[in-house]
């Protein structure tokens, strides 16, 4: 850990007393947590405990879900992201998201990366765009594998390469936060290891939150772990502590394989 956050610096993102409802059903109950650049945070917990729901509140992806309602405060650099003045398209560039199933556009590898920078006006020329595409693909750990076939369709890549392409696509618009929802669950162990290595390299540059149902993965990639159960945040702490000495019985039963 190279940088020390000064006590006065606001966290990159903070959620305070967040509740999420789907119609009458409450999926998240009074969750408060902070997300920062100097550590990767993993969200773990049994299926249906609300990990994805909570992650989606962080870039307002729940706005697109019919009947979903979010209460409480969520700030990015101290600014409320649910404020009516917030530009949601801009927000989703600053807080990028990578999904469980790699979802490249049915376009070339180049265009998959170039799409975001184009619509956000990040490039003034073709040469600019080339630089952005190469740098995003490099940071996504994919450049060497695709540099000779940038015109090939993104969907022709292997699953692991597609997922790194999607991470590259998120990176290309210079995000500040990257949210990942089970990004490796459709990948084989080697492709998974490459994504984990990538997460490791991206840490520090971006604030990263990852939902995973694989506890070994949470232990490997994160420095903070949050355990959710039935919509509540049961325990949050340093990953090595959570996995060696959790304070709550519910956390302990879950991570030791005694759940249900």
């Amino acid at each position: 850990m190279t940088e020390q956050t000064t006590p006065s610096a606001p966290p990159k993102m903070a959620a305070r007393h967040v509740n999420v409802f789907y119609g009458d059903k409450q999926a998240i109950r009074d969750v408060s947590i902070e997300i920062d650049n100097d550590h990767v945070i993993a969200f773990i917990g049994p299926s249906g405990c609300g990990k994805s729901t909570f992650l989606r509140t962080l870039n307002r992806m729940n706005d697109t879900v019919a009947g979903a309602r979010v209460e409480g405060d969520i700030t990015l650099d101290g600014e409320n992201i649910y404020d009516p003045s917030m530009d949601v398209v801009q927000l989703r560039a600053r807080v990028g998201m990578v999904f469980q199933k790699p979802n490249p556009f049915p376009k070339s590898i180049y265009d998959n990366i170039a799409y975001g920078p184009r619509i956000h006006g990040l490039a003034n020329s073709k040469a600019d765009l080339d630089v952005i595409v190469e740098s995003a693909l490099r940071r996504a750990g994919l450049w060497d594998e695709v540099k000779d076939r940038l015109k090939d369709s993104g969907t022709a890549l292997s699953g692991g390469q597609q997922q790194r392409l999607c991470i590259g696509r998120a990176i290309a618009v210079e995000p500040e936060v990257i949210l990942m929802d089970e990004p490796c669950s459709a990948l084989d162990p080697i492709a998974t290891a490459k994504i984990e290595e990538l997460i490791h390299e991206l840490r520090g540059r971006y604030a990263i939150a990852i939902v995973t149902h694989n506890m070994q993965q949470a232990a490997r990639v994160s420095q903070r772990t949050a355990f959710f159960h039935l919509g509540t945040l049961v325990e949050y702490g340093v990953t090595s502590e959570i996995f060696t000495n959790p304070r709550e019985d519910r956390t302990k039963d879950y991570i030791t394989g005694r759940y249900g």
């Binding site: 070994q216 232990a219 996995f243 060696t244 991570i255 030791t256």
Partner: peptide, 9 residues
Amino acid sequence: RAPMANDLR
């Protein structure tokens, strides 16, 4: 088994 927490200890 990749034991965790009290199991690991």
